[in-house]
Computed example of a mutant assay.
Amino acid sequence: MLSIRNIVKQYANHRALDNVSIEIEKGSVFGLLGPNGAGKTSLIRIINQITAPDQGEIFLNGEKLNPSHISKIGYLPEERGLYKKMEIGEQMLYLAQLKGLSKTDATARIRYWFEKMGIQSWWNKKVEDLSKGMQQKVQFIATVVHDPELIILDEPFSGFDPVNAQLITNEILELNQKGATIIFSTHRMESVEQLCDSIALIHKSKKILDGKVKDIKNLYRNNTYRIAYSGILNPVETPLFNINEEKKDEEVTQLTIQINPGYSSNDVLKFLIPQVQVTELTEIVPSMNDIFIQNVKN
């Protein structure tokens, strides 16, 4: 759906994006990841045509990105942009009409979303009278009210308590199930695990990793397992595995091991079962948080 090709963005002496290319499939939830200052926001601003690239091109549904695409995109920025003195209903009408809706259609859709989010009574409230989390709800509605094909969410859970974070998560998944493509920029790796089909990791202005989440996690598997057993294992030394960590209590011993090349978890079980009572043998697959840290720590 979105093809980002060889994007370069330079600000004075700082190169924010250095030849970045990303392909985002239609109907996917795509995680755009990276530490602060990596270039994520610069790329998001280019997709939204707030700024232009110095080099490279972006295509939306096969067409070179142009002003007519603005109505097909919904953007929730990390720095929120609501008018604090305006009444919420009036403000939502204004923003929806900027995206091409008639006043009648905008009113109907806003009322639908207000009811869906449980804020029917907020129409005449002013933004400045709301908490940060309440403002977030309003901003989210402004992002999706025109039913965009592409929804870009930059740190969408900032300011939400766990209940409202789950509410927004459910809405994101429902919009995706109805066909919307989601670009999701966040530092919350647990949200990436929960929501994203694919990711791209940008670090120091360059894309350093991309692909489907499951494929990336498989790529970083290193044959590490957690074992729990009761009894006495003697001797522990074996060519099958190396012990990374050992914990003991009165009845159970827990080992974190790395199985050596040429051996499998079945071989480990064959070694253990004649000696001890095995209660757990679980592969430790690196989390997206582990993979993120490993790639950006330098």
Rank of each mutant, 00 (worst) to 15 (best):
F157D: 04
I172L: 02
I182V: 14
K204R: 15
E155D: 10
L173E: 12
D161M: 12
L167V: 05
Q166K: 15
A180R: 07
L209R: 08
P156I: 05
D210G: 15
N176Y: 03
H203P: 06
I208K: 06
D197T: 15
K207V: 13
N176M: 02
L167Y: 11
M189H: 04
L173P: 04
E155L: 05
H203D: 15
Q166M: 10
I208L: 04
L173H: 03
K206W: 01
G159S: 08
P156A: 02
T186C: 05
K204L: 11
A180T: 11
Q194T: 14
K207S: 13
I199V: 14
S158T: 11
L167G: 01
Q166N: 05
L201Q: 09
G179E: 05
L209M: 15
G211K: 09
V192C: 13
L195T: 04
I183V: 07
A180K: 14
K204P: 05
E155V: 06
N170K: 11
L195Y: 12
E174I: 01
L201S: 00
N170P: 02
I202S: 07
I182D: 03
N176A: 01
P162I: 10
Q177I: 00
M189F: 10
V192Q: 03
Q177A: 09
I172P: 00
K204N: 12
R188P: 01
S205W: 14
Q166C: 09
D210I: 00
K178L: 14
F184Y: 15
V192G: 10
I183C: 02
E174C: 02
A200M: 11
N164P: 06
M189L: 15
H187N: 03
D197A: 03
I202M: 11
E171I: 12
E155P: 00
I182H: 01
I199Y: 01
Q177L: 08
I172R: 00
S205A: 15
S198W: 05
P162S: 12
I199D: 04
L209T: 04
I208T: 02
V163D: 01
P156L: 03
P156H: 04
Q194L: 13
H203G: 13
P162K: 13
K204S: 03
L195F: 06
K178A: 11
R188G: 05
G159N: 06
L195W: 08
L195C: 09
A200C: 15
S158Y: 00
I208H: 11
Q166G: 02
F160P: 03
S158I: 01
A165F: 03
M189V: 00
F160S: 11
E193I: 07
N164K: 02
G159E: 03
T186A: 09
A165G: 11
S158G: 12
N176Q: 12
L173A: 09
F184H: 07
T181G: 08
E171A: 03
L209W: 05
E174D: 14
Q177C: 06
I199C: 02
F157I: 03
I199K: 07
S205I: 13
F157M: 14
S185A: 14
E174Y: 13
G211L: 07
K206I: 08
P162T: 06
S198Y: 11
E190S: 15
I172N: 01
E190G: 05
T186H: 09
P156G: 01
V163R: 13
C196L: 04
V163S: 06
K206Y: 08
